[in-house]
Design a protein around this nucleic acid. Structure first.
Lengths: 214, 214
DNA sequence: CCAGCGATGTTACTAGCGGTAACGCGAGTG
DNA sequence: CACTCGCGTTACCGCTAGTAACATCGCTGG
């Protein structure tokens, strides 16, 4: 019947959608997370209502846009995480992959982490965490899965793995954010320091009791 | 001359300022981080221009407001961090203090973490990290200081301490954010799991090679 | 051949935001 | 009495997200 028709329409619609997303990408890359719908529409050579017809509202566009980058980054991370190597090497490689990504395109990274938390002010309850980057959540969950699959953690392993997944991702994120702003050392050094932290050097370090002047 | 007069004026101005901040506090507690200047002015029983005369712009008000809470939270954390106890106990106590704080007042916590990154769109360069919570930065720096003062980390200790400070704070933050949203376990369990992570259980865990079905 | 319909696109608008200019007003001072 | 000065207001600007209403093209059916 009209299935061929509909698929045709859908195909062109999808192409438009992809074009719009690419335009939005360019604008975000240029203007950062506060890119306006007007600017995106202008970049795409059209006007606002079309954007709204395609994506519903700003949150929809941002979600679609974020999904692409998030998926791409997660693919890279999975590759590093699943490599056939020693655990420490895998961890360092994963950290380095993430840091290299945020170093290469900080604007995109900023957008992913702070996707214009607007949404709708209706639900102002205890929804802490809805915003603040679905990317972090997804990375945390994926890492948790890998940890649980690969490591033998004894009883309560699932819960422990999830805590660790989110915790490690947060560590990586915060350290990366700070490092990107101050650049106090090379990427390799940062990776090494973080891996050292995860490897328990904090607990193993000796107390400093006889410090000079103290 | 007019010194006494000016101090008098300054005193009343400071009182007004405090009143306004308390009103803003109430609104933020009710509406979350997207509290509008109009709403805050209305809560204080005045109108917008007065707010602007006192705080310059929205960023100024938010900064003043954030400073109060940040200082308060940092004081609690310092107390837990500097307690005369075993290192593990201190770490757990600090984690618990932080988590208890965000659990008690999630709206305030959200405000501190995402202080309406607007500012002015002028400087759209590579300023990643300017936003995204000065609170996290301050906590990271303070923790770094404590780590460096208390622990003997050998050469490169300062840099290592800073990486760890920011990394641990990020771990705590992300895990807390996730936990607050899903409540998958008790606070005490979360604290224990995070401390275990910092104590190197990740590195010490055995590989899971003979899993059932795999 | 032409009526109609649906998708694509436009202009023009609303509501609300941050921020500001211009004015009103009461208190103290020469 | 006039004059200034700080507190407070109303009324506005420019911007944003989001929408309603209108125009237009291409395609299908009688």
């Amino acid at each position: 019947m009209d299935t061929t028709q509909r698929t045709d329409q859908q195909r062109t619609a999808d192409r438009r959608r992809r074009e719009l997303l690419e335009a939005a990408d360019r604008v975000v890359l240029r203007d950062g997370p506060q890119a306006s719908m007007n600017a995106i529409a202008a970049e795409a050579g059209i006007t606002k209502p079309i954007l709204y017809r395609h994506f519903g509202d700003k949150g929809g566009l941002y979600a679609a846009l974020a999904k692409r980058h998030t998926d791409a980054l997660l693919d890279s991370l999975r590759a590093a995480l699943d490599a056939p190597a020693e655990r420490r090497e895998r961890v360092e490689s994963t950290l380095d992959t993430y840091l290299a990504a945020i170093e290469a395109r900080p604007q995109v990274y900023r957008f992913l982490m702070h996707p214009a938390e607007g949404s709708s002010g209706s639900d102002q309850g205890f929804d802490v965490g809805k915003h603040s980057a679905p990317l972090l959540r997804r990375m945390g969950e994926e890492l948790a899965q890998v940890i649980e699959d690969r490591l033998d953690l004894g009883p309560g392993s699932q819960q422990l793995a999830r805590v660790w997944g989110h915790g490690i991702v947060g560590m990586m994120h915060a350290a990366g954010d700070w490092w990107l702003g101050e650049r106090p050392c090379s990427r390799a050094e940062l990776v090494r320091s973080l891996a050292d932290l995860l490897w328990g050097r904090l607990a193993a370090a000796g107390d400093r009791v006889g410090g000079p002047g103290f």
